[in-house]
Write a protein that binds this DNA or RNA. Structure first.
Lengths: 133, 133
DNA sequence: AATAATTGTAAGGTGTACCTAACAAATTGT
DNA sequence: ACAATTTGTTAGGTACACCTTACAATTATT
């Protein structure tokens, strides 16, 4: 096997995404804080982090800040970019308010195909360049 | 309580949608056939049908064709219309092939908000009327 | 009608993702 | 430094949505 394909559940993708965002913001993130952000128990975070560690997407030792690996960043970027593209399309093209756009993007980002996402990105791009409203 | 709010899981929505489609096509549908269509076991169908019956969305007696109730039709139409709107948008606006459009619509239909769906429907409508390609 | 094929259900099991409660370990405040 | 707070893990549970196996009931075939 050349590349280990590690497809994540929606749930694990959410954890990874939050870790990635903290990483991008240079914000030290501990499990308890992650639990608060995602509205789950510390126990659930504990389990989820163990899975992400076993998939080598994060590094983590109790009581330290969670860190994301290179592989983790690659995975997270895919998800996060989908999120952005969807949110953008909802806001800019469909004129949906930020809250609803984000909320829907959060769910759809986990299941939409790469191909469609690329088309949406392209479409939004063209659309916002054509129109000024 | 005036209206019983019955929000279904993605899975139950899939069962109901398949039953609705059979109903629309005047096709008698039995559990075993539904299992084949949805690629699940007869046992899983049996459980799912029991849940839909308890929610009064279908009527069902062993060895008979499954029938959908008025409430079931209302629920199913909402899902099915979301499916159509998404599929249409993917095909007509984004030029995605039917298979991928349908596949993605099948997943997204369960989680996207009514508001966004309406905007997409309106957008696709305007878009296909403006352009001839 | 008897046999074969189909359809359905029940029981028991898996995996996932949550939870609470209790406890342990580390960090922080005074 | 030591008490209080925060953080983390473990154990045991729930709920869901699947599954297989085995058996029961119905329907179709000959």
């Amino acid at each position: 096997m050349i590349t280990e394909e590690k497809s994540l559940s929606s749930g694990l993708e959410d954890y990874l995404e939050a870790i990635y965002i903290a990483h991008m913001n240079n914000k030290a993130l501990k499990g308890a804080e992650l639990a608060r952000e995602l509205n789950v128990s510390r126990a659930s975070v504990s389990e989820a982090l163990a899975k992400l560690v076993s998939k080598k997407l994060i590094n983590y030792n109790s009581y330290e800040a969670i860190s994301i690996t290179k592989d983790g960043i690659i995975q997270a970027q895919k998800i996060y970019s989908k999120h952005h593209i969807l949110e953008n399309f909802f806001e800019k093209v469909l004129k949906i308010d930020k809250a609803e756009a984000s909320e829907n993007a959060c769910k759809i980002e986990h299941i939409i195909s790469q191909n469609i996402i690329e088309k949406i990105a392209h479409f939004t791009d063209k659309y916002t360049k054509t129109r000024k409203d």
